[in-house]
Design a protein around this nucleic acid. Structure first.
Lengths: 267, 267
DNA sequence: TATATCAAAAATGGATGCAAAATTCATGCG
DNA sequence: CGCATGAATTTTGCATCCATTTTTGATATA
């Protein structure tokens, strides 16, 4: 393979799924970060699992240097954990950690809402309303993926409405750590779904009335509900997993891929 | 120089000041990060200035690999800016950015206070009170450095009282970006100083009464005041700098060290 | 069969090497 | 004197190399 060439690098990060990702270069680094985040969030790298440096190098056709730079950044972001002389592992999210993350994310979203009430233009609010109606339509047709996409767009629009880039970036960073957990509970019981829609109804109403306190409190509760749903899912999954593990065997020595999402984590 | 040896590395980062820093190793990386942050916050690396990779390598007696890893992390933290193929520069803080940072930091501190009211033990609150009295004593004796140290300790204690490690870490990250700006305005006009003390009085009172709303609002205002002081200082300094620059010469071509703290920053 | 021991293999942290890009600097032209 | 041009130098980004550490695996021992 030709060694020196800073051109575009086409990388197949397919193993389970056959997605092909174009690493934008110049700063190979940036694209690499995105790709790694994708791998983690998409579940190709399970929580607690060792990050296979050499293998990833091969997969991305890059040397260890840029990969290790990226890993250091991900570690700083909290997505992976770096153990001295023992490499990187994907960060696990135990219950308390998840709770803390949701708490802070909730704070930021609520305050973003407060700021949005004061700072968004009428036109911008109208756009959010439009998103809301479109989302509602997808709900009626039970089109889950489209629903989720618009749901997220609405939250993002409110966040952007805070007009505080630091707030937005901080939120993104924290939210990035729970993407995987959210991903898992992308199935909704109909009653939960309806409840979420109702909450969104209230959110829109508060935003339109520019009632900052009310919007903040609704957003906060809305997220708390989402958190409960997610945790419920995790616990269900954990229980299921435990039963399976038990029935299959009493113990396995060193699980290379431990309990998947929640883990005691001797931190 | 001996090449391979992972033992402790003693590094003299003295140039202007003769501070000697011990880089704890094993993960050379961590200590390096600290040292670099110190360099930036302490002002040895002015905002906007190029980060002299090779020179820092020499100064720390390390190769470029770990240094560059550290730079990537600092960039992710927002302390420096990485320009593709053009190296790193120390991040500049323009007015709006500083305002945004203070806004988010204020949010976090206020909410931390709210949580602290609910979660701190009576004993922990008593300790904060003790810190407060000690701080007050230093104020009376006009011992500025000791005053600042205890001031910070009190804010940290309240933050810790939130019992949310994510919140604490997020706060630390954001606060880390304005350390330098705070550093500059470590001179206080007596009236400001007294006002700050009064606010701290109120903070303690609210905390002791576990009045979450009140504590949150006071903390928020307290920080806003600090922000105003800092910005005032920056603007004064900027004005002074401009006059000097003007009187000295009409223009200089490419300032290697631009306006120091505030800069238009074509971001 | 379970555990201790130790050598082989692999992974990690860091140093060094090299091509491409950027910067500097000298020179030429208007 | 200002500005364009381009070669020499420096810097950057990444690949590769190597010592140390960790992990693995085989063998011996209880």
């Amino acid at each position: 393979m030709d060694r020196r060439k800073r051109g575009a690098v086409v990388v197949s990060l397919a193993q389970t799924k056959s997605s092909v990702v174009q690493l934008r270069t110049g700063s190979l680094h940036g694209g690499l970060l995105e790709a790694l985040r994708e791998l983690i969030n998409h579940g190709d790298l399970s929580p607690g699992a060792r990050v296979p440096e050499r293998e990833l190098c091969a997969r991305f056709s890059i040397s260890r240097t840029p990969l290790r730079e990226a890993l250091k950044v991900l570690a700083a972001e909290g997505l992976i954990q770096l153990l001295p002389n023992r490499g990187a592992r994907v960060a696990t999210l135990d219950d308390s950690h998840l709770t803390e993350l949701f708490e802070v994310i909730g704070i930021l979203e609520a305050e973003a809402g407060r700021l949005a009430c004061a700072r968004m233009s009428d036109a911008a609010i109208a756009e959010v309303q439009a998103l809301h109606y479109r989302m509602y339509a997808h709900f009626l047709r039970e089109e889950l993926p489209e629903y989720f996409a618009l749901n997220q767009a609405i939250h993002q629009a409110i966040l952007d409405g805070s007009a505080n880039t630091v707030l937005i970036a901080t939120y993104r960073n924290l939210a990035g750590r729970i993407v995987r957990a959210r991903y898992m509970s992308n199935r909704l019981r109909p009653d939960r779904w309806k409840a979420a829609i109702d909450e969104h109804e209230l959110i829109l109403e508060a935003l339109v009335r520019r009632d900052a306190d009310r919007l903040a409190s609704i957003l906060s509760r809305h997220l708390a509900n989402k958190r409960d749903i997610i945790m419920e899912h995790i616990h269900e999954e954990l229980r299921g997993r435990m039963e399976k593990t038990k029935s299959r065997q009493q113990r396995m020595s060193h699980a290379e891929t431990p309990p998947a999402v929640a883990e005691p984590a001797a931190e």
